[in-house]
Design a protein around this nucleic acid. Structure first.
Lengths: 344, 344
DNA sequence: TTGAAAGCGCTAACAA
DNA sequence: TTGTTAGCGCTTTCAA
């Protein structure tokens, strides 16, 4: 007798308890589908209905359940991004730009981190595909054939990045690491440097830059390049320690190419601490061009990668695909440049 | 006559086309719910069924649709995190740790960036609640009462962070910005410094640190603190420019507290470039303790925040709540410390 | 312009 | 231990 008008029908068994579109529709006196149209495609309903539904939305504080919507429409409006690490600022820049652009277009970003681990990457892929995102952004190329197969089988648009390959899974926005290694070597040789060393982290792309660097140096007949591998530790401190080791083995070193700006800053810091003149006695080149290295003293010479433009381009591709457009030029080489400053 | 066994029943109208649990179940010769149990709670099915279902999963490459599962169970296994910016490494550290811990527990991270903008934050909140995540991590305290109301109404567990308040929405992991400002002022006064300046970005929390700093200095009878507000630009360059401006107004400045390590590095860089001795002539204190500032020369004295422990604690809270546990001590002051190094 | 019906792919509840 | 049934909250399809 005193039942409110909420429970006129027989009670259902479950549910999250939140306001649903059906509640809004009932309040507005229209069918659920009409309320749906008023919310999503207002141009399809009359002004009268629009007003009633909007009122009801306001009164109830209704927030559409995108999970249900996603299931029904098989468009999740979710994009997944896979990154080795967030604390590496170049990746953070790409993700920030990607995320901002996606958000403007009504897409949400799901973030996965591999920590540079292959098995982690595999588990991540499964978790991502399980969410049925409308697109996937990969930092790097998917190396594992199992991963490639899964991705292909999922039918989800994929952007690989930060590298070049003739056989991308789908779309690609990258640059050539071999070219970078070679160009940096030539740059340093043109400066008259003669004894080279590399400081690099355990990372497949860094390895390819290193190999091209070594190749170019060898081709010009200089002594073999000394390579210091700092392993997984990508800190300023490991750069400092690397220089110490290098000086022990090759005291006559006069040029060092590092696999990241942070390592280069470490080398630079250690050099200054030891009273080694940079760039007079020692040239140092970094990789990434993190924003602030340009304004340090001495300013770091480094390889500039346009991390933000990669993020933006990826957003365009992914949104385009999610909206059913086909991307014509889906393989883009964004290139790089050597930002010549004070350290080399 | 030649129809495959896929389409024995009448064709359905829609769908994403991917392999579903029903396909797997049919192949394994069991009911869908049994296949579901084999996949999610293997202990509930017989060894025989488990094997048949696992085989079918392998043969088909089935990946469970978490969207559908989330809708049915009203547990999305999704946690949302709101951050002002990813390129600020302290936030990146927290997010990285949060994400890693969540992933281990089978949760996925959805990332939202406010860009320090309030209206952006509002839109973000709507997008996040629409996904019905199992938890929300907020960098900072939700200031807007509208936002607080929405969050409260959503019923989703919330962790606010990076700050303290007597009235959190739900859970809280933070530290006192006023205490930091006061302690840093006292630290510098104890060092015998007499003429103070602040470099700060346009940011509510930085403002509170600044005010407490000014208060402590005033209380001790020193000249008024000169404040340089660099606005939204949080770069090393803005730190350099800030020092230039400060020197113009207060040439006798001997201590500067910056609202971030990056700004402090800028001030430090500019000081060194001008031949100002640090810390002899000028003490510089940063905020955040980004990993590498400890190893620079001179090493930066800064306020250490345990960004990773915030992320880890938040993961624990959120996962606990998502699994129905109630958190007893849901307000945590993680504190801070002044990492005294060479710059002050 | 509006609505009825039928699912999206999965799991909770109940039953066998 | 396994299965049946009935939705989760929304949108597509088809019809009026």
């Amino acid at each position: 007798m005193q039942s409110s008008d909420k429970d006129k029908a027989k009670k259902t068994r479950r549910g999250s308890g939140a306001i649903t579109l059906a509640d809004v529709a009932k309040l507005a006196g229209v069918a659920p589908i009409t309320a749906s149209r008023a919310v999503n495609t207002p141009s399809q309903v009359s002004a009268d209905v629009l007003k009633k539904v909007r009122d009801a939305v306001h009164r109830t504080g209704y927030v559409p359940n995108r999970v249900a919507g996603g299931l029904a429409s098989s468009r999740s409006r979710l994009i997944a991004a896979v990154v080795p690490s967030m604390v590496v600022s170049v990746f953070a820049e790409t993700i920030e730009t990607l995320n901002n652009n996606l958000f403007e277009a009504g897409y949400q970003l799901m973030l996965g981190q591999t920590g540079y681990s292959a098995e982690r990457e595999e588990a991540l892929l499964e978790a991502i595909i399980g969410r049925r995102p409308d697109g996937i952004f990969l930092t790097g190329i998917m190396q594992s054939s199992k991963g490639r197969t899964r991705l292909l089988a999922s039918g989800i648009p994929v952007v690989e990045s930060w590298d070049l390959t003739p056989t991308p899974i789908d779309m690609l926005i990258g640059f050539s690491h071999a070219d970078i290694g070679r160009d940096v070597a030539q740059f340093l040789m043109a400066k008259g440097r003669q004894r080279f060393a590399l400081v690099r982290a355990e990372d497949e792309r860094a390895m390819r830059r290193a190999e091209a660097f070594q190749g170019a140096v060898a081709k010009s007949g200089f002594k073999e390049v000394f390579v210091d591998n700092v392993g997984a530790s990508r800190t300023l401190m490991s750069g400092r320690q690397a220089l110490s080791r290098i000086l022990l083995k090759t005291p006559d070193v006069d040029a060092i190419f590092c696999s990241s700006d942070l390592l280069a800053m470490g080398v630079l810091t250690e050099a200054l601490a030891r009273g080694i003149a940079v760039p007079q006695q020692l040239s140092i080149v970094g990789f990434g061009d993190v924003p602030h290295v340009a304004n340090m003293v001495p300013a770091l010479t480094t390889v500039h990668i346009n991390a933000r433009s990669i993020g933006q381009q990826a957003a365009e591709f992914l949104i385009g695909r999610a909206q059913g457009r086909s991307i014509k030029q889906a393989i883009v080489d964004v290139g790089f440049s050597i930002a010549e400053r004070d350290s080399a």
